[in-house]
Write a protein that binds this DNA or RNA. Structure first.
Length: 198
DNA sequence: TAGGCCATCTGGTCCT
DNA sequence: AGGACCAGATGGCCTA
């Protein structure tokens, strides 16, 4: 971190006019010189130093404003991530997804929903039945890998729009037979149910 | 205590 | 010129 612009900086940066000499007195000073020379140097230093200090203050203020904007920007980003967490299936232990987990999970979640729709449409086309979208039976097929008691209810008691908690694995809706290629990610575990994301 | 996650600061770059 | 975006650095907190 640049000590010059750190927030814990001395008043020299923020209030250069309050203790002018203390702040810049050491710059180039220290060596014994004749009095008028010292005075001239002091004047010169003062003139040059003031503009330097002014530029310094301007720079510092700009930096502080930029820091503030950056902070707000990151807060907005975090708010968006929180909103995203809010629409993703929750986890039984209520552990908050990390940022990277949230993004990966959202990616997988969207992918899984798309697959669900695609497969449902295919099945509907074969049988002539009306399209079956997000069927609970489709998503909770107990024979499918990764489905160990997870339930998904679009009209259940838990939530009108969110899938219910998974009993032992976080979040991911159970996959039908067609999802047999889905595998647990060694790192992400059940939270990852789409291949080839990384 | 090491490692992961996070917030914040910072300087660089690009865009308006 | 100023703002937005980005990536690196740093330090704090938490957990295994």
């Amino acid at each position: 971190m640049d000590p010059v612009f750190s927030d814990t900086d001395t008043s020299c940066d923020l209030f250069p006019h309050t203790d002018d000499e203390d702040c810049r007195g050491s710059v180039g000073g220290g060596s014994p010189q004749p009095e008028h020379h010292q005075l001239q140097q002091k004047k010169r230093r003062r003139g040059r130093g003031r503009s330097d200090a002014t530029a310094h203050v301007v720079k510092k203020n700009r930096r502080l404003k930029a820091n503030d904007r950056e902070r707000n920007r990151m807060h907005n980003l975090n708010d968006a991530l929180d909103a995203l967490r809010g629409v993703l299936p929750a986890f039984p232990d209520e552990t908050k997804l990390t940022k990277i987990e949230t993004l990966r999970f959202a990616h997988n979640y969207i992918w899984a929903l798309s697959e669900t729709i695609r497969i449902a449409d295919l099945q509907a086309g074969k049988s002539g039945d009306p399209p079956l979208l997000l069927s609970p039976s489709l998503l909770t097929d107990s024979s499918s890998p990764g489905s160990d008691g997870c339930s998904w209810s679009s009209s259940g008691s838990s939530s009108s729009s969110s899938p219910a908690y998974c009993a032992s694995s976080p979040g991911s809706p159970a996959a039908p037979e067609d999802y047999r290629f889905l595998q647990q990610d060694p790192v992400f575990g059940f939270r990852s149910f789409a291949p080839g994301i990384y």
